[in-house]
Design a protein around this nucleic acid. Structure first.
Length: 276
DNA sequence: ACCCTCACCTGCACGC
DNA sequence: TGCGTGCAGGTGAGGG
């Protein structure tokens, strides 16, 4: 489910809550969660390791371990972590569990089975395909207007599909892509390479601002250690979007009805008057 | 190098 | 009530 702001928040929460914890044993309950790993391997790669810290790259959550390995996880659409104590049962759709030496455990739960886990040699982390192909971090110097200009020029796809491509711009998902295009006043149907040069700086700023504001908003919510990420995407109603999921509603700028269209099999929301 | 389609799952809201 | 349809905050494989 989550996009970069939510993933960043979850990674911070995990770092706060399980950073420094030592794994006693790791259980893989659904083999396809970690397709590169045999089930017995999974425990072997993680058992007795201490979690140094938790961070993220793109939408990947990375558990840096003291055995020279990193546990990479991707929540995809419905993955979530929960920290449980001894007595509670594992929830439905639990696919992996890290049992800590203090008796608590971190559960990975995923209703739609899209999530992924992978154990990687930390020294080779940046070479892993899921990391290596990612665009620069949107809050970094490397993601500047000039970078965006070069990438836009090379793409004949619609701007919306371009923004969802994590190898071009990383961190946006279906919500914040629509929100960023609305703020920038650019039609989602416009071809990426046809975004006028004079509007690229604004588009760049809108992407960064949308993500930064969402991160600030998400970070202000009360953390729930029993369901890390709960409240982040548990109560979607808290999202105060300008266009996302507002089909037919009045544009907050010009009152024209917000439209929904399909692009690349996914919904895009936009204002046909404000976005050209 | 790029772009398109399909695939992976479950559950929920909706209309008949 | 039940059944069909479409929808959901993501990506990767495999083809052109």
């Amino acid at each position: 489910m989550p996009e970069l702001p939510e993933v960043e928040f979850v990674a911070r929460e995990l770092n706060r809550i399980v950073g420094g914890q030592k794994i006693a044993t790791a259980e893989l309950l659904r083999a396809r969660l970690a397709p590169d790993s045999q089930i017995p391997d999974f425990g072997g790669l993680l058992d007795r390791a201490k979690i140094n810290f938790v961070h993220r790259r793109g939408k990947n959550i990375l558990f840096d371990l003291d055995n020279r390995r990193t546990l990479l996880t991707h929540l995809r659409m419905s993955g979530r972590f929960m920290l449980l104590n001894g007595q509670a049962d594992d929830p439905k759709f639990t696919h992996a569990v890290l049992h800590f030496v203090d008796g608590s455990r971190l559960v990975f739960q995923d209703q739609r089975h899209f999530g992924l886990m992978k154990v990687i040699e930390t020294a080779r982390l940046d070479l892993d395909p899921s990391i290596a192909k990612l665009a620069p971090e949107p809050f970094s110097e490397d993601f500047g207007p000039e970078y965006l200009r070069e990438q836009l020029a090379r793409s004949g796809r619609s701007l919306k599909e371009f923004l969802l491509d994590q190898t071009k711009v990383c961190g946006l998902g279906n919500i914040y892509a629509s929100e960023a295009m609305f703020r920038a006043g650019i039609s989602p149907k416009r071809k990426a390479r046809n975004v006028p040069g004079v509007r690229i700086e604004r588009l760049h700023r809108c992407i960064v601002d949308v993500l930064a504001e969402a991160l600030a908003e998400v970070s202000g919510r009360t953390p729930n250690p029993a369901a890390i990420g709960e409240g982040v995407y548990g109560d979607g109603a808290s999202g105060d979007w300008r266009v996302y999921e507002r089909e037919g509603g009045p544009c907050r700028t010009c009152s024209a009805p917000i439209r929904r269209i399909k692009q690349g099999q996914r919904s895009t929301y936009y204002c046909p008057k404000c976005q050209r």
